[in-house]
Amino acid sequence: MPLNKDALLQVKGVKKYFDVSEGIFTTKKKYLKAVDNVNFSLKQGEILGIVGESGCGKSTLGNLIMQLENPTEGEIIFDGIELSKLSAKELRRKRKDIQMIFQDPYSSLNPRMKVFDIVAEPLRTHKLASGTDLKKQVYDMLEIVGLNNKYANRYPHEFSGGQRQRIGIARALTLKPKLIVCDEPVSALDVSIQAQILNLLLKLQKEFQLTLIFIAHGIPAVKYISNRIAVMYLGKIVEIADKEQLLSNPKHPYTESLLYSVPVSHPKLRSNHEQSKLTGEMPSPVDPPPGCRFHTRCPYADEKCMEETPDLIETQDKEHYVACHYPLYRERVSNSDSVQAILD
């Protein structure tokens, strides 16, 4: 897939293989291919959603972008600079432009630090503010994420899950990053709180022209927040396109059945596509199936699929990329218009 030169982030041929050889005397190494040749680019101000079943490599990809893991192969170019070529010191400086928000805000916040210090810490570490200026910046940030100043002297355990996520967001924002990788930021939260956090992220994205990567299991939430969606399967992006395009015209058989697995939002839509739902489970990433990795579960698989790995290529529709020998060209039944027709 062609990479955009003026993109804020470019991920080029990135692989992450974990060594999972058993025993120390084995000569033959075994690798778990968590991320296997991923390519995409991200424009400034974009929100990219990443979806896929558990273990498909979403978090590993996020960690690679965050430089929390080193890629086995490939390049991550941020703001025109290849991150792996930077010295430790340069990387530290660059890193403040990329921040992360995690699923479990509790384990990512230091329990012995007060909220004020949690939010102030990045500013102190990078020597960006002190004294009254620091205080003002922290208070402003708390206000921006919807936390009352009076909470500044409390500890994380005194807060609810949603409030803790706000603290995590405030901390991620203090350094005015360009890119935020959100790894399942709302998965652990109640529905009503989820909506609060999704709306907060959208508001902040506009206010600070942030670029977001939003990783999540919950496809409806990803639909709500993203501009573009990437679908991963066994370490690979199998489809990536504009949100509306991907949801109404999924071209990869995996995307299609994944979408049909999502619970309906109204009982009238129940069991319309029982037969289109996905059967079986995702195979192990240690010995992934040869050829197209989805062939063991794909209703359209033939011999070619078992032998040749399909590349992620652009389809007739511009900016709609799919990795399948036989992409689908049909509209998904339950896009908004047809659903409206059923309901009327």
Partner: peptide, 15 residues
Amino acid sequence: STPKLDFSQTELLSI
């Protein structure tokens, strides 16, 4: 406040 896949939602109301 529940995000929905099969409806367009311009705004998600939160509680």
